[in-house]
Design a binder for these strands. Structure first.
Length: 223
DNA sequence: TACCAGGAGAAAA
DNA sequence: TTTTCTCATGGT
């Protein structure tokens, strides 16, 4: 696929060969992906699915609806995702921002409002949107090439020696983007594969032997 | 019972 | 600037 693979691309190809295409993000609409990015903060996705199901069942999975509902009612719907009072405020903050950009009814149009760096800066200014959440929204909801770094990325790439693991978020993101073609499908699949590996074979335990990455890692990939 | 899971903001050091 | 604390549910 790429003419001059490097260690970063080699790792991607090994992950892809092992785990296959991940079909991310698990959301049906750009708004659902954005909401999921907030709801999944420090929370297992299985809990987020319940919260999103509640929003769907209540007909609330849209920015205009969320802005209309009282905080307490919204918190009740997203309760399974944990930190529900905090996340209710964060969801509303995101919706207010989408309204300010005049894209509340069609959040995918946010991608047309400004270049990626400016969009990222604006998202980071929204209450409740940190770097990982902003990059998740840019990449998975807006199809823009912004690499997502998470705890799995730090752990796995620290273990295989491509990073130290304790760098700042921006530094790790820059390392990926400097060493990979700036292509949305690649960033999309790469992060999804990292999460898949992190969830299935890289729990804190001795080497699992299930992933080809372990073949080159003296310690196995673990926390 | 304790720990972990696809963080972020606020306060303290 | 960096570290610590808080938010909080559900599964193992």
């Amino acid at each position: 696929m790429y003419a001059m693979p490097n260690a970063w691309l080699n790792t991607y190809h090994r992950l892809f060969e092992c785990h296959g295409r991940q079909h991310w993000w698990p959301g049906e609409t750009p708004f659902e992906i954005m909401a999921g990015a907030i709801l999944t903060q420090n929370t297992a996705w299985s809990n987020v699915e319940r919260a999103i199901a509640n929003l769907k069942a209540a007909g609330m999975l849209g920015g205009e609806h969320i802005l209309d509902v009282p905080d307490t009612a919204l918190a009740g719907l997203i309760r399974p995702a944990g930190c529900f009072n905090v996340k209710a405020r964060r969801l509303k903050s995101l919706c207010r921002y989408l309204a300010e950009e005049d894209v509340l009814a069609a959040p995918e149009r946010l991608a047309d409002q400004a270049p990626l760096p400016e969009l990222r800066r604006r998202l980071l200014a929204v209450h409740g949107v940190g770097e990982e959440t902003a990059d998740s929204i840019l990449l998975y909801a807006l199809d823009l090439p912004s690499f997502v770094v998470d705890a799995y990325t730090r752990r796995i790439f620290g273990r295989i020696g491509l990073i130290e693991g304790d760098e700042r978020y921006a530094d790790i993101r820059a390392r990926f983007q400097e060493n990979l073609p700036g292509e949305t499908p690649l960033y999309n699949e790469y992060h999804a594969l990292i999460v898949q590996l992190g969830k299935t074979t890289c729990r804190p335990r001795p080497r699992c032997g299930e992933c080809p990455l372990h073949a080159g890692c003296q310690y196995g990939i673990q926390a």
